[in-house]
Design a protein around this nucleic acid. Structure first.
Lengths: 244, 244
DNA sequence: TTATAAAAAAGGTGCGTACCAATTTAAGAA
DNA sequence: TTCTTAAATTGGTACGCACCTTTTTTATAA
């Protein structure tokens, strides 16, 4: 699985060193030229690794001064790392005490693609999609209603029972591609009748909404999804860095 | 202002071409080697420009195949572009019909740094901070309550009236650095008494919450901020791409 | 015509060089 | 000692090369 890429290997190594408190005194990494020497790789590769860490918010690079460790990244690593490896917006990647949630399939149909979604999913509105609704819960507590649309031509073999398990894992098996990109809009809404019933909410208790598109690695729009979450399960962490 | 960096210039040029529909037929950019020639720059610079576009979600790069345009980026450009140039999470960057919101200062004090914030702001809990609360509105409609904490040693000169204007612009002037990085947690909450009063909400109507830290370009934690938004103003767009 | 294999195309990785720009440090002068 | 200036440090930009991996296209064979 590990593709043995130098810059990724070094990125991980540095990240581990950082989290292990290797550079705690100075909160600063060695300079790029030194790193290049000690790792025995080119400065270009070091720069590439550091760029990844900077994009994560693990370090800040300052010209003329050095590469500094973000104390919050170290301290709060659990929170900060939530994003890495699990948080693609959300959807499939819930976990609690290492245990995945149960999934109940509320409905499952094949229908013509709703007009508003056709362009987003890059298909014609005469094409068919799977339309399904799922309910997720931990033990007795339901926390999310998910409405999803998937073009049938992307997953011609999709069966009903697959939808009671992890969709993303299934896709990775079948398509041999990961789902690593998403475009999401996050919002807030008072709870609807359905929300209150399914998620066991009072009328004063709201839901968080996530809606958007998930892409395969090659950019194929794979699913349009609308998620409504119990407000107390809604917790989205994000590190934003404006380049331009 | 424009720093005349080749890779950024090319990034913009390509982005404009894309939005202008230059590549509409194929939805595909020329290959890197060709771009290198036509722009008269090295392939490395082209790669760098394309990487920026890929990180934005404007294009998808597929080895062996080419660089493809994300149709959603073109179509929905307003939404997609919301993030670029204005959306650092949110805070200062609101606008509506090109018009900035009014800001009312609800409170303004200097106090010792709350213990939970000290480490996040990278200061001691014996250090002092400005603590303030602001209310933002468009015309008659208030839409956000913001509670902010800023270490006094970062902005020793901060005056009360500055807080009724754009804080970020002020910082850029004084510190000669932008505020281009933030680490935020997004959540949902039923409205509190104060929310309902200030934001004119019913008890069934919730707020969206944004809380986290804003950094200066060099990584200095500059402000801890908690924002509570009217649910109908809460709209956060994000493109997520998992690298590793 | 169809299946298979070779070639070409296209993006990815890694190394290296040269020089630039901001910051910090050290040296020298007042 | 303190201020000013020059040098060293450190990350940033740009170019180029060589080679790899995946995908697509083309040519060849069945």
């Amino acid at each position: 699985m590990e593709k043995n890429l130098i810059y990724k290997k070094i990125m991980h190594e540095l990240q581990n060193q950082i989290l292990d408190g290797e550079y705690q005194e100075t909160m600063k990494l060695p300079d790029e030229r030194t790193l290049s020497q000690t790792f025995g790789v080119s400065r270009s590769s070091i720069k590439r690794a550091l760029k990844l860490l900077a994009d994560k918010g693990a370090v800040f690079q300052k010209r003329g001064s050095g590469t500094f460790i973000n104390p919050i990244f170290v301290k709060n690593d659990s929170v900060f790392h939530y994003k890495n490896g699990s948080n693609l917006g959300i959807s499939d990647s819930f976990q609690m005490n290492g245990q995945s949630p149960q999934i109940k399939l509320l409905s499952f149909n094949v229908e013509r693609c709703p007009k508003e979604l056709a362009t987003d999913l890059f298909i014609k509105d005469t094409d068919f999609v799977y339309a399904f609704k799922r309910l997720r819960s931990f033990d007795d507590q339901s926390f999310m209603i998910e409405t999803g649309y998937i073009p049938i031509k992307i997953l011609p073999q999709l069966e009903e029972k697959t939808l009671t398990e992890s969709l993303f894992k299934y896709v990775e098996q079948v398509k041999k591609q990961g789902v690593t990109k998403s475009y999401l809009t996050i919002g807030v809404s008072p709870s609807t009748e359905e929300d209150r019933t399914e998620l066991n909410l009072l009328s004063t208790e709201p839901v968080g909404t996530l809606s958007g598109i998930f892409f395969l690695d090659d950019g194929t729009p794979f699913e349009y999804s609308q998620m409504r979450l119990r407000y107390d399960y809604m917790n989205y962490h994000t590190f934003v860095s404006l380049e331009d």
